Each structure stands twice: as structure tokens, then as C-alpha cells.
Simulated scan of single mutants.
Amino acid sequence: MTCDRCPATFRGDFVVSDLIAPPVRLDLARAYVRTIGWSCTDAGDFCPACTGPAPAPAELPHLGALMAAHSPVAGQCAWDGTFCRDCTRETGSAVRWPCAPVLAEADVVPFGGGWSITARPVAVVA
């Protein structure tokens, strides 16, 4: 089961009859992950880190533009780590991701083989 908001995944082995239909199997898995903090509703399946409210719609375009301007890219080898494609091109030397511009505007936490990225509130000037 994969979180509908981040790349977190739950994997488990469940012993069920071949006669049980796939939708019922999914319901059984959802019943179990609810016991370990997941939220599974008609709105989606959310891991324990994502069970809070969704980001405000105003944050989403800003976060998308930020990620488009500072894209993470894997290094040549597994031990190279992840780099900011755009900052590396701009400076001519390897810049680790998350880079300074991303960290200035978002909280970035490694999570489930990927990243949990949450935009910090943007000050609105009236």
C-alpha cells in the first residue's frame, strides 16, 4: 500500500484465500495499517506522517515551482548521493540536494525511499 500524499509504502504478507476478491483483500490490508497509524478513508490512504491536513492549495503551486527550479538528480554511482541539477549546472560544481534555496523555503525529510517535502508558509503581503 502506498501513501496517497508521499512515497511511503507499507508492505506485508497476509494469508488469505484465493476465493477472496482483490477489493476485499485491499480492505483487509487497510484494516491492518489503520492499527499502525495509517488513515484509510474515501479521501485516500495516508501514512502516519501524512494523516494531518493536506497542504493549503496556495502552497502547492509555490512548491511545484520551487521543485521545478531545483530538481533532485541521482549521482553517477549509488554512493554519490543526490544533487540539485540546476544549482550544479549554475555553479559548475556538485551541489548536494536538498540545496540551500529548497531548504530556505521547504522542510525536506528523507522518508520511505524518497522525500517528504512540505512548503513553509508563504507570507502574504496585503
Rank of each mutant, 00 (worst) to 15 (best):
I20E: 11
T35K: 08
L19T: 14
A58C: 03
L19C: 07
P72H: 03
W79V: 11
G64H: 10
L26W: 10
T91W: 12
G37M: 09
C99P: 01
C87K: 06
D45C: 12
T88D: 05
G92E: 08
A31K: 05
A104Q: 08
P101W: 02
A49T: 06
G44Y: 02
S93A: 09
P61C: 07
W38H: 09
L66T: 00
F83S: 12
L103E: 09
A56I: 01
P98S: 07
A65R: 14
V73S: 04
G64M: 07
R96H: 09
D80Y: 02
L26S: 10
H62C: 01
D27C: 13
G12K: 02
R34H: 04
V33G: 07
W38Q: 09
P101T: 06
G12T: 15
D4L: 11
A94Q: 11
G64F: 01
A56L: 13
A78Y: 11
H62T: 00
A29T: 15
P48M: 03
T91C: 06
R5E: 14
A31E: 15
A104L: 02
Y32F: 15
L103G: 04
C77Q: 14
G64E: 09
A29Y: 08
T41N: 06
T51F: 00
I36D: 04
T9A: 15
L60E: 14
F10I: 12
V24R: 15
A69G: 10
F46W: 07
P57L: 08
S71Y: 10
R85E: 08
R5V: 06
V16E: 08
D27M: 15
C77G: 04
I36A: 03
Q76M: 07
D86W: 07
V102C: 01
A21R: 15
R34I: 11
G44L: 03
G12I: 13
A94G: 05
D18E: 15
A68R: 14
A8E: 11
V16Y: 09
R89V: 05
G75Y: 02
W79Y: 07
G75H: 04
G52N: 06
C99T: 02
C50R: 01
A54S: 12
I20F: 10
C50A: 05
L60S: 07
R25D: 10
S71M: 14
H62E: 05
H70Q: 01
A65Q: 08
A78E: 14
V102A: 03
P57G: 09
T35W: 02
R5S: 14
T91I: 00
C6M: 08
E105C: 01
A104Y: 00
P23E: 12
P98T: 02
L103C: 08
C99D: 01
V24H: 12
A100W: 01
A49C: 06
A49R: 10
A31G: 15
G92D: 05
G52F: 03
A69D: 10
A106K: 02
A106F: 02
C3G: 10
C77R: 13
A43D: 13
H62K: 07
G81K: 13
P55K: 05
P48T: 05
P57K: 09
D18I: 04
P72Q: 05
G44V: 00
A100T: 08
R96S: 13
T35A: 04
V15S: 14
T88A: 10
A78H: 10
R25E: 14
S71C: 07
D80H: 13
R11T: 13
A8G: 06
A43L: 11
G81A: 11
T51Y: 00
R25I: 15
A56T: 07
Q76N: 10
T35C: 05
S39C: 11
